[in-house]
Design a binder for these strands. Structure first.
Lengths: 344, 344
DNA sequence: CACACTTAGACGAACGTTCGCACGAACGTT
DNA sequence: AACGTTCGTGCGAACGTTCGTCTAAGTGTG
């Protein structure tokens, strides 16, 4: 109940020096069973908890991990942020760490903010989301030799720890699934070229098409930013193709594109599923409520979070993990949007 | 570039004692223009930033704010979490504060976790989301006299600082809007009784009905937890009512209920808008992509975040703000789901 | 020119912890 | 019985900051 119980209070209670208490609590020295018992009793009775600032001052660590992510605008909310946050917070807690938020906006002085954070010993390590090619954060942290783990990949030549979901395998699964349903002409809605995540996913589509020996029309691969609107417009473009070249299946690298696609398909009088098959990516919380439900790839977010934290905590405690890159596989959740195809 | 620039380094550079540097930087004492200039030059040249731990050890404050929210499951993701997080992080940054995440799960030992956080001087204040009646967090923080600001309300007899969006006014607006469209029989999908947020919103519905002199059938008010499924089932229950008692309008206190409702309406062969009008709450990022788009109430989240932080920072710096409770009004975004009603 | 009075800045101490070394007692070994 | 070796603790110092007191000049007054 009383605030500010320190090592000295515990020590007085247990009849030893406060330094001894400190060492016993951290298992740094062996003491007689008797004194250990006395110390533990005193700790329990007084409810002692070590003060963060004092510890931090000596050890330069403060059990705080920064989480850097790129906040999105209203229209393209991150469907997995909440899940990921919960996952890393819980995992961190088990190792006595906490998570500090640190959004990444594109500003000139953003990197100095990161520098300051590191220099003032505020945090012990970083977790970075939404990585891109030539990501300045990665560059900076590598240069400063500051511990961090990425969720996602950046430049292949940069050596750093990351966990990623195999989007390539994911789109292979989605594409093959459409192939299995009987689709021959399959289009893909992708991100611009500078997105490493997007390129990996698109490659999965290419591989699956090749494996099925299906030709790919150049006009079937459309790239865009934004969200639903792009999916809508791009799909209209696809449906404008002459019937012999018009795709019957559309894989997308993000759910919002798929939602736009579904809407365009419906607006043009086609029937989702039986005439045009569609798949998404992320299995956003709301895609199961579309009708028909959207077939989508669910990322094992909880697992990603746990592994990310485990990697970082291992690094921080000095045990360099062996695996620097960990790849997890998404799960294809099949719903109506890709089922019931009837060939003509 | 070199790590660990301390006050002493700056002092040596400027030819004064390090304590003087500290005081000058904090404007605690007046010094000659010359020494001040020398100090500032040294700070700039060396790139000095005060160490958090050292400061924290003395002052017991560490410019860290805990954010406590209730993480949801996959199916009922919080549509405004990302917006709110971005808002509070940015606002906090301007006052040199950072945000630490602290999820609130219902566990026995949860409160001791909060206690420990406070006792070890980890954070200076709390921001609490997802408040309920008899919220144990509020009770604890009031008892410990620890600074916090709530986003939302709890028991009226508890005196504490909070910012809230006037859900009552919101549902008044939504209900009146349906009345304006010509609806006479309007139902409401609400949360269980223990939700203070939910009750406030429901009261807005009741008030608007009363103001329009419309009777309320007991069977029109349905309460449930969960998300889309409840909206779906509840709406089916409503549509099962005999035609003379069957509602033509449905207001809901959260978008996910509305989505379930839209689906049920469609499945039962009714037409959304012209036969059954529906409104949601939150204006979740995806509701504009439903067809028809869902009329919904948008909360001024960014403003909420800024005000919340401002309140807390003011409290922490010793200036008790005058207004303890601040209420903001949501905005009704009208889309197809509530338009085009044709009376019989 | 002696006096109090302001001013600029120095200085020791403290916050709560961890680290490294010292030291006495008990122990086993020759 | 004399001698290293462990074992169980104590103790001074340090981390970087802020706080309160103190001093040595400079400033005005009679």
């Amino acid at each position: 109940m009383p605030k500010g119980i320190t090592l000295k209070d515990v020590a007085r209670h247990a009849g030893v020096s406060f330094q001894t208490v400190s060492k016993v609590l951290r298992d740094e020295i062996k003491v007689s069973p008797d004194t250990r018992a006395r110390i533990e009793a005193a700790v329990a009775e007084l409810g002692y908890k070590p003060d963060t600032a004092g510890r931090s001052l000596r050890t330069k660590t403060n059990l705080l991990i920064g989480y850097s992510w790129k906040p999105n605008f209203q229209s393209k909310a991150n469907p997995i942020l909440e899940l990921f946050l919960r996952s890393i917070v819980q995992a961190a807690e088990q190792s006595k760490y906490h998570i500090m938020l640190f959004p990444y906006c594109i500003q000139d002085d953003m990197l100095t903010a990161y520098r300051d954070l590191i220099r003032t010993n505020r945090i012990d390590g970083f977790i970075l989301s939404d990585l891109n090619y030539d990501d300045p954060r990665v560059e900076l942290l590598l240069e400063l030799d500051f511990p961090f783990v990425g969720f996602g990949r950046s430049n292949p030549e940069w050596e750093f720890f990351y966990v990623d979901v195999d989007g390539r395998a994911g789109l292979r699964m989605a594409t093959s699934h459409l192939v299995d349903q009987g689709h021959k002409r399959i289009a893909a809605l992708a991100w611009p070229l500078n997105s490493s995540v997007g390129e990996a996913r698109l490659n999965g589509y290419l591989e699956a098409m090749q494996k099925a020996s299906l030709p790919i029309d150049k006009d079937w691969i459309l790239r865009g930013e934004g969200a639903i609107e792009f999916g809508y417009q791009a799909t209209n473009t696809l449906l404008d193709l002459p019937e012999t070249r018009r795709p019957t299946g559309i894989v997308t690298i993000v759910d919002s594109f798929a939602i736009g696609a579904m809407r365009a398909v419906t607006d043009r009088g086609f029937i989702i599923g039986s005439e045009i098959g569609i798949t998404g990516f992320d299995d956003s919380p709301f895609v199961q409520c579309l009708s028909p439900g959207l077939t989508s790839l669910r990322q094992p977010i909880d697992e990603v979070g746990q592994i990310t934290i485990k990697l970082l905590v291992d690094i921080l405690s000095g045990n360099q993990p062996e695996e620097r890159q960990i790849m997890l596989t998404p799960e294809l959740i099949i719903r109506g949007s890709s089922l019931g195809f009837k060939q003509h």
